[in-house]
Computed example of a mutant assay.
Amino acid sequence: MTAFIDRISQLLTTAPLWIQSPIVIFGSVVICALLAVLLLRVVDILGAWTQRIGTSKISGKGQEANHG
């Protein structure tokens, strides 16, 4: 596996700049898109969680009855 990665990195470092640039830009866009999807998923989960907590406190759900 290391030899494969070394071969690819050697190929890219010896390639002309007009070949390196699109590869780096495309790779960056793909990685950033995947991270954006992950971040949006985390924000959606946290938003749903906080909305559920806020709704239960306002409506009185989840509170124990006072048998005092």
Score class of each variant (00 low, 15 high):
Leu40Ser: 12
Ala36Arg: 07
Ala65Asn: 03
Ala15Ser: 09
Gln63Glu: 09
Ser21Tyr: 06
Ile31Ser: 11
Leu17Asp: 12
Gln51Ile: 01
Gly27Gln: 06
Met1Phe: 10
Leu39Glu: 05
Gly47Met: 14
His67Leu: 12
Ile5Tyr: 14
Leu39Phe: 04
Val30Gly: 09
Leu17Ser: 08
Leu40Asp: 13
Ile31Gln: 08
Trp18Met: 05
Leu11Asp: 11
Glu64His: 07
Gly68Leu: 00
Arg7Pro: 05
Trp18Ser: 03
Leu46Pro: 12
Gly27Asp: 04
Phe26Gln: 12
Met1Lys: 07
Asp44Gln: 06
Gly47Ala: 13
Ile5Gly: 04
Glu64Gln: 13
Gly62Val: 01
His67Gln: 03
Gly60Glu: 01
His67Cys: 01
Ile45Met: 08
Val30Cys: 12
Gln63Ala: 08
Ile19Met: 10
Gly47Trp: 11
Asp44His: 04
Thr13Phe: 09
Thr55Asn: 15
Ile25Glu: 11
Ala3Ser: 15
Ser9Gln: 15
Met1Arg: 04
Gln10Val: 07
Thr13Gln: 15
Thr50Gln: 00
Phe4Leu: 10
His67Tyr: 10
Ser59Arg: 01
Thr55Tyr: 14
Gln10His: 10
Pro16Met: 09
Leu11His: 13
Arg41Pro: 02
Pro16Asp: 13
Arg7Lys: 09
Trp49Leu: 13
Ser9Glu: 14
Leu17Lys: 10
Ile25Tyr: 05
Gln51Ser: 03
Leu39Cys: 04
Gly68Ser: 00
Gly27Val: 06
Val24Met: 08
Val30Gln: 06
Gly47Tyr: 08
Ser56Lys: 03
Thr50Lys: 00
Leu34Glu: 12
Thr50Asn: 02
Leu35Arg: 10
Val24Cys: 07
Asn66Ala: 03
Leu40Cys: 09
Thr50His: 00
Thr55Met: 13
Val29Cys: 14
Ile5Trp: 13
Leu11Trp: 10
Ile58Thr: 06
Asp6His: 05
Ala15Met: 05
Arg52Trp: 06
Asn66Lys: 03
Gly54His: 02
Ala33Asp: 13
Lys57Leu: 06
Asp6Ile: 03
Ile31Lys: 12
Arg41Met: 12
Leu46Ile: 10
Leu11Asn: 08
Ile5Asp: 07
Ile53Val: 03
Glu64Ala: 14
Asp44Tyr: 02
Gln63Asn: 06
Ser59Met: 02
Thr50Pro: 02
Phe26Leu: 11
Thr14Asn: 10
Phe4Pro: 04
Leu11Ile: 11
Gly62Ala: 09
Ile58Val: 04
Leu17Trp: 04
Gln20Ser: 01
Gly47His: 13
Arg7Val: 04
Val42Phe: 09
